[in-house]
């Protein structure tokens, strides 16, 4: 689903109508997929999900500005970005279903993606642990004289970890071409950002010598404008930057969470404040989209996902001996013996 270019660069001197429309289609597809996976979880088809609803806008904006050689070291709530960079829905479904076609043999909980072919690293659970890793990946890129930069995303809760602070400091001391993006959705499970930190997130880089930028991530043009500046900075200065995209987590933290216990929803999906609805209205006012076409996109997304889900559900689970593999390059006698005695 990458952008297809063409036309005149009307928007922010950078994007044409098709690119904006493509971003919207990916965002709609992502929301539709999110909703379907939540349903599938309720039906007992899929075990778990951390929905990305509310995160679509900054993620398509990043997608529009990423280049082929850039490495993305993301976290579990970046579904839209995976779709934008071309991860096939079939592969995503295999991952959610943890079936035998899943690249990691169903070893991971849903949302712990492994799509190296599409320029991503592998997602772990411990929050923000991948940030120092991302600095090391950038170091490898620089030392091997490769093109591109590293983009590393995490949540607002992640900014409280030691990993975050270590990563910022190392990135700055080593002057690495890396962009840290905080997808500040207002909550870390139940903890509001106001109790996560008393300092503005974009300022957290300053003490390490890293500039920060913050913008309304619910609005496509403000997100694009912010990210254009940030990408340009990292690409030209080959130095780190800290980006805060202010958004709102519209769903529960995960399918195991009930946000009614700790908050009143401020933005209701489908309402006029829903960033996806605002995106649609903007495209309509620009004459790029009309209701009819919008309905077509949504119908296509729903049907496409339904058909593919049905198809992928037929795939059997991974064989049980896949438990034993990939601990080391070659199993040691310990794994070999455990396999022999078990099977």
């Amino acid at each position: 689903m990458g952008s297809n270019g063409g036309g005149t660069l009307k928007f922010l001197n950078r994007f044409d109508e098709n690119e904006l429309l493509n971003a919207y289609r990916v965002a709609v597809y992502s929301r539709t997929l999110d909703d379907r996976i939540i349903n599938a979880q309720r039906q007992g088809i899929i075990g778990f999900h951390t929905p990305s609803a509310g995160h679509e806008i900054p993620q398509v904006a990043m997608g529009m500005l990423l280049e082929k050689d850039d490495i993305v070291i993301n976290y579990y709530r970046d579904l839209t970005l995976l779709l934008f960079r071309g991860v096939p829905v079939e592969n995503l479904l295999d991952h959610f279903l943890a079936n035998s076609e899943d690249f990691s043999h169903g070893r991971n909980m849903p949302d712990h993606y492994n799509f190296r072919e599409y320029g991503f690293y592998s997602v772990q659970s411990p929050v923000a642990m991948h940030l120092p890793f991302a600095v090391g990946a950038a170091y490898a890129k620089v030392m091997k004289k490769e093109n591109g930069i590293v983009l590393s995303n995490t949540g607002d809760g992640g900014t409280s970890t030691g990993d975050f602070h270590a990563a910022l400091n190392f990135a700055s001391v080593w002057k690495m071409p890396i962009m840290f993006v905080i997808e500040n959705n207002g909550y870390a499970i139940s903890l509001p950002t106001s109790e996560q930190t008393k300092a503005p997130i974009e300022k957290k880089g300053e003490a390490y010598g890293i500039p920060g930028i913050s913008f309304d991530g619910n609005d496509i043009f403000s997100a694009l404008e912010g990210f254009i500046k940030a990408f340009e900075y990292v690409r030209t200065q080959r130095s780190p930057i800290l980006v805060e995209a202010r958004i709102y987590r519209m769903g529960p933290h995960s399918t195991s969470d009930d946000p009614k216990k700790y908050r009143k929803d401020e933005i209701v999906p489908g309402s006029s404040d829903d960033p996806l609805v605002k995106f649609k209205e903007k495209l309509k006012s620009l004459g790029i989209l009309n209701e009819e076409f919008d309905n077509e996109i949504k119908k296509w997304a729903t049907e496409d996902i339904e058909r593919k889900l049905e198809e992928r559900m037929k795939i059997p689970p991974p064989s049980k001996e896949t438990i034993i593999y990939d601990v080391y390059e070659n199993p040691t006698w310990i794994q070999e013996e455990e396999r022999r005695e078990w099977l």
Binding site: I73, P132, F133, Y139, A140, M143, A167
Partner: peptide
């Protein structure tokens, strides 16, 4: 570039080293 005096942070030393290793160093 190849013998690095790092800041005083073990999680940073090991965390970055793992990233280097995963991407070919």
């Amino acid at each position: 570039e190849r013998v690095i005096d790092t800041p005083l942070n073990e999680l940073g030393i090991v965390g970055t080293a793992i990233g280097m290793a995963a991407y070919g160093l």
